[in-house]
């Protein structure tokens, strides 16, 4: 019996490690590619020079990376905050209140969430141009948040639905106004949902490069994803610098890995739709 248990656990570990190997291998390869030149067969840290100084490569200027890391964090937090500030009250209304056109609005949200944002790019570009908001962080923040909010409202509504009416009624009887009920009783009981949405929003912002590529022309307003996109999408006649891509790519991945280590326990509790994991 004990032996069976022991070997069963070993089997699980064995397969988990087996499945993990390709990913570990890829990360190691990324690192090796960034420091090893296959043609000359020499090791060098030259591809990591963005850590210490700005430089120019084949006509493209690369600023030093730390202000861009800062930009990324600010940009990510800004989108997360805006996303939560809009999505939480909206989801609360969809879950708890009855209002005219609720069913229609929900369906519309669903369509909005499913609509590929890329098809709206041209219109968004013109709108931002007429509003004079091109090359501003504001434009990217608004468009990026607008793209995420419909789904997040949908998911958060599921979490609100999970909190029983009795709890809210109880709060009202114990002396809370509707608003107090929301932040003293309901929100603390759906923290896992809110943190999930916050993580989605931050990750979405972290990975956002198309909007940045399109709307930001200024090196000082780049985020990490945009920085990476700068190397990949060079002009056709230029040779792509694989070493530099792998170096920036690896640098770009590290924070996500660290972030995941801290948030995975929250993420594991959540399934989309709002029910808690068993």
């Amino acid at each position: 019996m004990n032996l069976w248990k022991f070997s069963k656990r070993n089997m699980i570990h064995f397969f988990m490690i087996l499945l993990m190997l390709p990913i570990v291998f890829m990360i190691i390869w990324l690192f090796v590619s960034s420091v090893y030149n296959y043609n000359s067969g020499r090791f060098s840290w030259v591809n990591w020079q963005f850590l210490t100084r700005s430089f120019e490569l084949e006509g493209i200027s690369f600023p030093i990376i730390w202000p861009i890391v800062m930009n990324t964090v600010v940009f990510g937090l800004l989108i997360t905050v805006i996303d939560l500030l809009v999505a939480i009250p909206a989801a609360y209304a969809f879950s708890r209140l009855n209002f005219f056109g609720k069913g229609f609005a929900l369906k519309f949200l669903f369509i909005m969430g499913s609509f590929p944002g890329i098809t709206l790019l041209i219109t968004s570009f013109f709108i931002m141009m007429y509003l004079g908001l091109l090359n501003t962080v504001f434009a990217v923040v608004v468009l990026s948040a607008a793209g995420m909010i419909p789904w997040h409202v949908y998911i958060l509504k599921g979490f609100f639905d999970e909190v029983s009416w009795d709890l809210e009624f109880s709060g009202m009887i114990d002396g809370c106004s509707r608003f107090k009920c929301l932040y003293q009783i309901i929100l603390p009981n759906m923290l896992s949902g809110i943190s999930a949405i916050a993580i989605y929003a931050f990750m979405g912002a972290y990975g956002e490069w198309l909007l940045i590529k399109l709307f930001i022309f200024d090196n000082t307003k780049l985020t990490l994803a945009g920085y990476l996109a700068k190397v990949i999408f060079t002009d056709d006649d230029k040779v792509t610098n694989i070493g530099l891509i792998t170096a920036i790519g690896l640098f770009y991945t590290i924070p996500i890995g660290i972030f995941y280590l801290f948030t995975q326990s929250t993420m594991m509790k959540v399934t989309i739709g709002g029910s808690k994991g068993v």
């Binding site: 029983s164 709890l167 009624f169 109880s170 009202m172 009887i173 809370c176 009981n189």
Partner: peptide, 20 residues
């Protein structure tokens, strides 16, 4: 009059204790 101003105590079937 809002429930909060009615000066009542209530026990629910589900007890509705605040889990947090």
């Amino acid at each position: 009059v809002e429930p909060k101003d009615r000066d009542i105590g209530m026990v629910f079937q589900s007890y509705a204790l605040y889990p947090h």
